[in-house]
Simulated assay, not measured.
Amino acid sequence: MDQFEMPPVLRRRDADRLRCGLFEIVDELSRLDGWSEAELDIVIECVERQPAYALRSDFAHFGERLDKARAAAATGRKR
Results as ranks from 00 to 15, higher is better:
C46K: 13
G21S: 02
E45V: 01
P51V: 01
A73C: 13
H61T: 08
G34E: 03
R77K: 14
V43I: 12
C20Y: 11
K78I: 13
F62H: 09
V43Q: 10
A60F: 07
E37S: 05
G63E: 06
T75N: 14
E5V: 13
R19G: 03
E5C: 05
A72Y: 02
I42M: 06
L29T: 01
E28M: 09
C46R: 14
V9D: 08
Q50N: 05
L55H: 05
F4L: 12
E5I: 12
F62S: 02
R11L: 13
D41V: 02
P8Q: 04
M6P: 06
E37N: 01
D14E: 15
S57V: 09
P7M: 09
G63V: 07
A52F: 05
D27W: 01
D67R: 02
E64G: 15
L18K: 04
V26C: 06
G76M: 10
R12D: 15
D27L: 05
D58A: 13
E45M: 10
D27Y: 03
E45T: 06
V9E: 14
L18I: 04
V26T: 06
G21C: 00
L22Q: 05
D14H: 14
E5M: 08
V26N: 06
L32S: 09
D33G: 04
M6R: 13
R19I: 02
M1F: 11
D14I: 05
A72K: 03
I25K: 00
D27I: 04
S36Q: 02
I42G: 01
P51T: 04
I25Y: 03
P7A: 11
E37T: 00
F4W: 13
H61C: 08
R17D: 06
S30T: 01
D67M: 07
